[in-house]
Each structure stands twice: as structure tokens, then as C-alpha cells.
Simulated scan of single mutants.
Amino acid sequence: MQQQVLVDMDGVLADVYQQFINKEFELTGEYLDIKSMHGILESEAFPHFESIVRSEGFFRTVPQIPDSIEGLKYLNDKYKVLIVSSATEFPTSLKEKVDWLGEFYPFISWRQIILCGQKDSIKGDIMIDDHPKNLNFFDGKKIIFTQPHNVFHNEPEWQRIDGWKQIIDIL
């Protein structure tokens, strides 16, 4: 039986940090340095987080993480892939996320997309996520995708990766 791989969207496929940096610059003219955000959640790192994340188009126009299209295609050809995103907190994100996936990852079927409130009831063999809170409950293989907010989280049972080329190498 084919292994099931759960892939997070924000911070794994979608470069939300770059999107926040771009939006903060549009609002304030100040370009925030990503290195100053190490160990800080996005909601604390970006002064206008709430208004930006709830704005129309935020999720629809987010850039892709480098090599994620090729990497996800590779996984999709080899495993049973589910895209799992904690999206219901931001209701405008639901359609935007589905449309964004359809544009950049057309090989992912709507049947492979799970938009939820929490990921603790979603089961699989491997989870790729950038938030420790999602990996903490997971019973399978845990892969943490490096983002500024998680650089100081190092759990022995997690495998840390810094990009999609590493995912292809290990899976």
C-alpha cells in the first residue's frame, strides 16, 4: 500500500514570509529583515499581521517556495499526497488556496486538498510542516520545513529540511 504524505501549504509550498515582507513594505515603505524574525511567530514578527492575513488576495498571490512545484510533483508520482492546511481561521483563504493550488500545482486534484481548523485528526505516514504544533501530535515520520519561526525547535524525532531538493533526496 502506498504511503500517505501530508504536505502543509503555508511555509512549505507557499512563501508566506516573503508575502508578508512584501505587504509590510507596501503599507509602510519599510523592508523587514527575515533574519530578525528567527524564533518569532509570524503574528509577532509582522506589525500588520492581522490586517494583511485577512486581506483579500493575500493567499491567492503568495509566491511559491523555490523548487516546490517539481518537488510536489515528484512526491505526487511516488506517494499518496494530501495537501493539508489549517485554513478555516481565515475564511477568505479557502477559495484563494484552492485556486492557488490549481494554478501552480494542477496535478493535485481537489480530492487531495484538506482545509481544516486543526491538523490533529488528519492521519498519514509522513508529515511535512513548518509548525512544531502540527508535528507534535503526529504519529508518523515528522519532517520540519525550516522557516524563521522554527529555527530553534529541534526535536530528536523530527528530520529538518531546508528546501524541496532535500525532500526529494530523502523521500
Rank of each mutant, 00 (worst) to 15 (best):
D125H: 11
Q64K: 13
I52N: 13
L82Q: 15
M9A: 11
P91N: 06
G102P: 03
K133Q: 10
W158A: 03
W164H: 03
N76H: 09
K97C: 10
W110Q: 13
S55A: 13
G124K: 00
G117C: 14
R111I: 01
D33C: 03
V151M: 11
H149I: 00
D120Q: 13
S55E: 15
Q118N: 15
E155F: 04
P148K: 00
E50R: 08
C116L: 03
F46L: 09
D139V: 14
E24I: 02
I170P: 12
F58R: 05
F20D: 00
F145Q: 04
T146W: 05
Q3V: 08
Q166T: 00
L94W: 11
V98S: 12
G11E: 02
Q19G: 06
Q112I: 05
S36L: 11
F58M: 07
I108N: 01
Q2N: 15
Q159W: 00
G102S: 07
K141V: 09
F25R: 14
K133S: 10
D8C: 06
Q166C: 00
V81R: 05
S86C: 11
I52C: 12
E89G: 15
W110Y: 14
I143G: 00
S86R: 04
F59I: 09
Q147F: 01
N136G: 06
D67V: 00
D125F: 08
F137R: 04
D129A: 06
K23R: 13
S36V: 05
G71H: 02
I128S: 00
V7P: 04
H149F: 06
M9F: 15
D10T: 07
V151K: 03
F49E: 06
L94I: 15
E56P: 14
S86T: 06
V62Q: 09
K133E: 13
G71E: 05
K97P: 11
P91T: 11
Y17L: 07
L94C: 13
N134F: 10
L13V: 02
K142T: 03
E44S: 08
I69V: 15
K142A: 01
E155G: 02
K23H: 08
K119P: 11
K73D: 08
K95D: 09
E155M: 03
R160C: 05
G39A: 00
S85M: 04
S36I: 08
V81D: 08
Q2R: 13
F25M: 07
V53H: 14
Q112P: 04
N22H: 07
L171Y: 06
A14Y: 01
Q147A: 03
D10W: 06
S85R: 02
Y31V: 10
Q118P: 01
H38C: 09
D120Y: 08
D15N: 06
I108T: 04
F107M: 12
